[in-house]
Design a protein around this nucleic acid. Structure first.
Length: 664
DNA sequence: CTAGGGTTAG
């Protein structure tokens, strides 16, 4: 079911304290003269004797690594603090050889050789440099291992994505009676879900449950940090029910716990619940103050349900808290406006950001133009981005190729796809899916199939899905069957693929084949997702489904649509009944088309909004051809601007024309 | 001396 967008106002608390603007760190060395003592007439105090340990530490703090490193060999007795400074600075600068030099010096140092504090630091530095074998070696050779050393190793394993080894080390701790603590669990859990080429994600759920069970036995499962990490892990694995169980059972929840649960809903297609939970947190009076991360998660949820009003309240809150100094918050705000249909507002925020824009900001604008059908603008922004000296990344290309495919820019798309190598971006399945979509829609089906055959990676369901979609547009039965032979295998539970193929068969008048697919659907107990459209009128959400025609208002709406259709028929329109699979009378098919949820929502909007207002509709599926034609006509006939957001993109209907240019 | 949540795409 679809979570309805909450419409009661948010009551955001006054901030407990304002965020401080970042200030430049004052790095004054102990040798610097004190400015206040110069005016008193007294002679300046003599400089203190140079302490080589202090000197190295100061050099490290100022990033002057080369000089610090040069002083190390001549240093008779490094202190713990000196080793620490060097290790932290070396890791920050990505200097593996300096880290190794400090490591060697440390091994020869009789005072600190067995110091667990410095072993911890060494493991952390190696891990940050991506040198897991060295980190592991430090651990294995450490003369003394306290809990910090163990946890540092678990963190290193999590960072490297070695789930199995992390689990093995955790059980070592049990066997050796090392008392684990909450840190061991958080690192262990993160290791379970860390991306790793060598482990299938399938195993992640089992691993998380294993560590979870372990934590329950040791009484750590309710610990705030451990439980929050568990919520996050189950959220990332898509097991929302588990995340909920843990979250609602937590004895104490802080802002991070709430943010994790809000993000869980937002990520797992339950944006309405995310907004509700946010409101519950605000209302709970537990003194919890939303921070930038909380706000970003909620903005993301607002975009998911077109909850522009809530998004605007959050915008005001962002300004009040001074969060508009944070690029990540502005990026999320921009994306929210564009995903709620306000492309111009997103653009304005982008412009206002000026030099603070990062790759995410650019990607966001490119995808914004793309989802609104402005392919040329997206390509222009891409070029501007390159001129501004930013490197396009994987996501930039997914966005810009998607924009090309939404706008039918075949040549531009091909060129961009080929240029990926120039930016050292290796095409992933998503990029191929975009290209197949682009070529396929343009009718170049053979070329699309050739591209798939040339892939050096396994084609994902999205790639075959793009081919299948193109086959539907062009009525290509043979390639559709080829795509489905893979799709039915890769995602047997996706009803959409069966429906699309049935659609293609129906149009080709292969009714026996349609029946076979229907039987298949029944056999697998798969149900078509019901079409649903919603519209917000006077802060109230109204949703329509294609199936319910019991309410009297719906009859009235259908009658209104019927009038438009009659008018259209006079002008030569023929209802597109080919997409109705049932083997029934034409007249009945036309009646089914009249009941499509999007038409109902448009009619409702026409009746219930003022003549100058833009009608904004959201639909859970892709728009059907017939609804598209009818909406185009209505936009011209009634002189109304209609904006429809479907699963993939926006359609701006104006004066009988749609911004998608028939590409969607 | 360590730790938990977020942004762009699909």
């Amino acid at each position: 079911m679809f979570a309805s967008a909450p419409t009661t106002p948010l009551h955001l608390p006054h901030p407990a304290f304002r965020t401080r603007r970042p200030t430049l760190a004052r790095c004054r060395s102990s040798f610097a003269p004190s400015s206040s003592s110069s005016s008193g007439g007294a002679p300046p105090p003599p400089p203190p004797p140079a302490n080589p340990n202090h000197l190295i530490q100061t050099l490290c703090a100022n990033g002057r690594l080369a000089r610090a490193a040069a002083l190390l060999p001549g240093l008779p007795a490094p202190t713990q603090r000196t080793y620490e400074s060097l290790l932290i600075a070396a890791a920050r600068a990505g200097d593996a050889s300096l880290t190794a030099a400090v490591h060697r010096r440390l091994e020869a140092d009789p005072v600190f050789r067995a110091d667990p504090f410095l072993s911890t630091r060494l493991i952390e530095s190696y891990a940050a440099l991506g040198a897991l074998p060295a980190a592991r070696q430090v651990f294995d050779e450490a003369p003394a291992r306290d809990i910090f050393v163990w946890n540092a190793l678990l963190k290193a394993l999590a960072l490297a994505g070695h789930a199995d080894e992390a689990l093995a080390r955790l059980s070592d701790m049990g066997r050796l009676a090392v008392p684990v603590d909450s840190y061991s669990y958080t690192h262990g859990l993160k290791a379970c879900i860390a991306a790793s080429a060598s482990h299938a994600p399938r195993g992640a759920f089992a691993r998380v449950r294993e560590v979870h069970a372990h934590a329950v036995r040791r009484g750590y499962a309710a610990h705030t940090h451990v439980a929050t990490t568990l919520v996050d892990c189950y959220a990332k694995l898509g097991v929302v029910a588990y995340a909920e169980t843990i979250f609602f059972a937590m004895p104490e929840r802080n802002i991070v716990s709430w943010s994790a649960m809000i993000a869980c809903y937002a990520k797992n297609e339950r944006p309405g619940d995310a907004i509700e939970l946010f409101k519950e947190m605000i209302a709970s009076d537990a003194g919890l103050v939303p921070n930038p991360i909380t706000i970003v998660s909620v903005l993301n949820a607002c975009a998911g349900v077109n909850a522009l009003d809530h998004g605007k309240l959050l915008h005001a809150y962002i300004l009040r808290r001074g969060f508009d100094s944070l690029v990540s918050v502005l990026n999320a705000l921009m994306a929210m406006y564009m995903r709620c249909g306000r492309l111009e507002v997103g653009r304005r925020i982008f412009n206002w950001m000026g030099k603070r824009r990062d790759v995410v900001s650019w990607n966001s604008l490119i995808s914004g133009y793309g989802m609104h059908g402005f392919g040329r603008e997206a390509v222009q922004v891409f070029e501007e981005m390159v001129r501004a000296g930013l490197s396009p990344n994987i996501i930039t290309f997914i966005s810009v190729l998607g924009a090309c495919s939404h706008a039918g820019l075949v040549d531009e798309g091909k060129e961009l796809f080929e240029s990926m190598a120039d930016y050292s971006v290796t095409p992933r399945a998503e990029h191929y899916a975009s290209m197949v979509d682009l070529l396929g829609r343009a009718g170049q089906l053979e070329e699309a199939v050739e591209l798939i055959e040339s892939m050096r990676i396994e084609p994902s369901p999205q790639v075959w899905g793009a081919l299948l979609g193109a086959c539907r547009i062009h009525g290509h039965v043979e390639f559709a069957e080829m795509a489905c032979s893979h799709l039915f295998d890769l995602e047997p539970r996706n009803a959409g693929n069966y429906v699309l193929l049935a659609d293609i068969y129906a149009r080709a008048k292969l009714h026996n084949q349609v029946d076979v697919l229907k039987e298949l659907l029944e056999e697998h107990a798969l149900e078509k997702v019901t079409g649903c459209s919603w519209i917000e009128v006077k802060k109230k959400l109204h949703s329509f489904t294609s199936v319910d025609n019991k309410n009297p208002p719906v009859e009235q709406l259908q009658a209104l649509i019927g009038e438009f259709v009659a008018q259209m028929k006079n002008e030569g329109y023929v209802p597109d009944t080919g997409i109705v699979h049932y083997n029934i009378e034409e007249e009945e098919k036309e009646r089914i088309l009249l009941g499509h949820s999007e038409k109902l929502a448009v009619a409702f909007g026409l009746i219930n909004t003022g003549s100058g207002e833009v009608i904004r509709i959201t639909k859970n599926l892709r728009l059907c051809e017939d609804c598209h034609s009818v909406t185009k006509f209505i936009s011209k006939f009634t002189e109304r601007e209609i904006v429809v957001k479907d699963v993939n993109r926006f359609h701006h209907f104006r004066d009988g024309i749609c911004s998608c240019g028939e590409y969607w």
